[in-house]
Amino acid sequence: MKLNLLLLLFIFFSKFSFAAENTVDPNLIHKNLRCLVCQGQSISDSNSDFAQTIKLVVKDLIDEGKSEDEIYEFMSDKYGDWIVFKPQFNTQNSLLWILPYIALIFGGFFIFSFLKKRQ
């Protein structure tokens, strides 16, 4: 079983070392932008005028060599943070990103306190 796992690990890693390219995927960006005129859909899911326009602009921005995060920043500059599905890590959102992990660590600590100190 361990051998299988090692083999699997190997296959996956080798697959990855080849696929590590640094291109920006427009589809991914479309998925992470909210279509403001639709009910809860992403730009990728929508075909509205707004979504089409955003798709064109995203394509331009990628051609200009902007990175994924720069594109999100551009969009939230123009339309507010509401448009980006991935909340930025800033002071306002710090609790959102950190609290789950605090809960995780705290929970682990809690369980540990229940364990026998010595076997």
């Binding site: 005129v37 005028d49 602009v57 123009k78 339309y79």
Partner: peptide
């Protein structure tokens, strides 16, 4: 093609 509208944060 609507590209300029994005600069001004237009959505409809």
């Amino acid at each position: 093609n609507g590209k300029h509208s994005v600069k001004f944060g237009i959505y409809g």
